[in-house]
Design a protein around this nucleic acid. Structure first.
Length: 268
DNA sequence: ATGGTGGTCATACCA
């Protein structure tokens, strides 16, 4: 018996519904956190998920851009949406779910990409990203009342040297600049979070969850980045039994540029 | 130094 949670930036939930269906049938995560659903709530394909046995769904979507959804086989409660940077963007959603003796709070995040130029003075998108990270500090792993916490999603930052294909060549590229990687690591550590994807995978090993659409052969060039993350409160480290990064999903028919990540815990 | 691809929504904008 186990409890599993998956995170996947799906880049349009409606376009990729066939892939999501296949994924849920094959891997059966208890909870699936989607980002970039690009779907207003009134058009979200609730019935398709219900048919697959996922009857508990929290959504925060908008037309055309962003959007997060948390899809569960287990009952969810305490649904909470936090607006960041007073932008009206749908980039965060949290739910509570029971897993064995644990009450879990699961945060689902889609952090702003930040545009091209890593300068907050000339690039408002990068400024927004840095401000978003500062507001993210409020999301600590201590959820109170005996709750354990997970924080998953597309954080649009690859913090470690081996989270990118070339640390040196990426230092001035948005997603791997020092201000981003240092801020993310600082807020993670001060927030009491454990980087669970790296808990059993050495920092010496390359690890990616995203490969650009703009390459002739993503698999051959393999210029990936680890932009998607699974963080947990420290007590969950001892319960982590598996972490799957579905690299193959990048080669599926009409894929997202991100692949699913599934964390499994020995919780019932 | 540049443009490369893909999604949304129908033209630029975003990633």
């Amino acid at each position: 018996m186990s409890f599993s949670v998956a995170t996947w930036n799906i880049n349009s939930v409606r376009l990729r519904m066939p892939l999501v269906e296949q994924f849920l049938k094959d891997y059966e995560p208890d909870v699936l956190c989607l980002q970039e659903t690009k779907c207003p709530d009134e058009h979200f394909p609730l019935k398709e998920f219900h048919k697959l046995g996922y009857e508990h769904i929290a959504i925060s979507g908008q037309k055309g851009y962003h959007g997060v959804a948390t899809i569960s086989r287990r009952p969810i409660s305490h649904i909470d949406v936090v607006e960041f940077c007073e932008m009206g963007d749908c980039r965060h959603l949290s739910v509570a779910v029971e897993a064995g003796e644990k009450q879990l709070r699961i945060h689902n995040f889609y952090v702003p990409a930040g545009g091209d130029e890593p300068n907050p003075l000339t690039n408002p998108k990068f400024d927004h990203k840095l401000k978003f990270l500062e507001e993210m500090r409020a999301m600590t792993a201590d959820a109170g009342d005996g709750f354990s916490s997970l924080l998953v999603g597309d954080l649009n930052i690859a913090p470690l040297e081996n989270d990118v294909w070339s640390h040196k060549q990426m230092l001035k590229v948005v997603s791997h600049t020092p201000i981003e990687t240092e801020t993310l690591e600082d807020l993670r550590i001060k927030g009491g979070w454990s980087d669970l994807m790296r808990f059993n995978i050495s920092a010496d090993e390359k690890l990616y969850t995203w490969w650009s659409y703009r390459s002739k052969d993503w698999a051959a060039s393999n210029r990936g980045r680890r932009l998607d993350h699974v963080w947990g409160s420290k007590d969950l480290e001892a319960h982590l039994i598996d972490m799957q990064i579905l690299r193959d999903a990048r080669g599926w028919e009409r894929p997202s540029d991100h692949v699913p990540v599934i964390a499994k815990f020995d919780l019932i």
